[in-house]
Design a protein around this nucleic acid. Structure first.
Lengths: 164, 164
DNA sequence: CGCAATTAGGACTAAATTGGTCTTAATTGT
DNA sequence: ACAATTAAGACCAATTTAGTCCTAATTGCG
């Protein structure tokens, strides 16, 4: 389904919470506020910490804070921290693990597609994400939309309009 | 890892093969040409057929052909045929299956992000994909890139340039 | 100092998903 | 009639993911 994992989902929730609250917040406090189990909150925060996206303070009164301003953290970073590299296809990461590698002439194009998606995700900041109904994200979607409404997206634009 | 499944990967390989060969071609012929097992080829083709992307002919001399010109088939369609709806988050498809749904204020923005990604994928045609080093895909990536090189993507542009 | 609160770094199990194979039925050209 | 072919879906093994738990290391506070 071209999905991110649940951990990543929780990760964005945790990060937006940290973006809204500049205090240092403990994993358990975040957990109770966000309806997560402490274990899950801890796991997510540890990963975010090793990726350098949050700053951890140990000991009593310890907790987590964003390592950088929310406007300087991108969704791409959050996703990569929790999910690994953003790459739709296997062959974009490791070579020689794909059985059809010789006969596959689509590899170069997959690279380009991955790049496009990473670029899109890199342009959405945590600050955008924390703002309800972000205009910047909507603007991005508008920019990606086909210029003259032609091309293979033609028949898709219909349901695109319908459901979002 | 934000990946598509292997079936989807095979699916694009099969579709590009069909795009290059206008004859009606059987599952087993495709399999041998593309280094796939017949079973896998059959499975993929059946799914592509139920999604209406290929046309199947039964019986002796039967096989598959593209249902439409390759330029009228988008990568979004292929991915959705084999992978289900393109939606990064659970909550974009079914409501009420997410434990943090109440406290999650990022849902609206996730919808926008999904939309952006679907739009990007809907603009890549099978014909683009079949062309080695498609200029149209590269142009899409360029259009998505941040206009004035600002925003939260700033520190990512570096590795973006480096690896693709 | 010693205790309580906290993060670090894993191991571990159960559940869910995916990949791959197989079986049987239906269709059609020769 | 037969051989080639797709349709439909059951099935199991392998992998991945989710969730829990345990044991250290660190630090503020009484």
């Amino acid at each position: 389904m071209l999905r991110i994992g649940k951990l990543t989902d929780y990760g964005t929730v945790v990060m937006t919470a940290l973006a809204r609250d500049s205090r240092r917040v403990s994993a358990s406090e975040l957990a109770t506020n966000l309806h997560l189990t402490v274990d899950v909150a801890r796991k997510v925060l540890k990963l975010l910490n090793s990726a350098g996206l949050v700053e951890a303070t140990r000991g009593a009164q310890g907790g987590y804070q964003l390592a950088r301003p929310a406007s300087d953290i991108s969704m791409a970073e959050i996703i990569e921290a929790l999910e690994g590299p953003i790459a739709l296809t296997e062959c974009s990461i490791h070579d020689h693990r794909c059985s059809v590698e010789q006969s596959c002439n689509a590899r170069g194009n997959w690279h380009l597609i991955n790049r496009a998606i990473r670029l899109a995700l890199a342009q959405v900041s945590l600050a955008d994400m924390a703002a309800p109904g972000s205009g910047r994200i909507a603007a991005l979607a508008r920019r990606i939309a086909p210029p003259q409404a032609a091309g293979p997206a033609a028949q898709l634009v219909e349901w695109e309009r319908a459901d979002v």
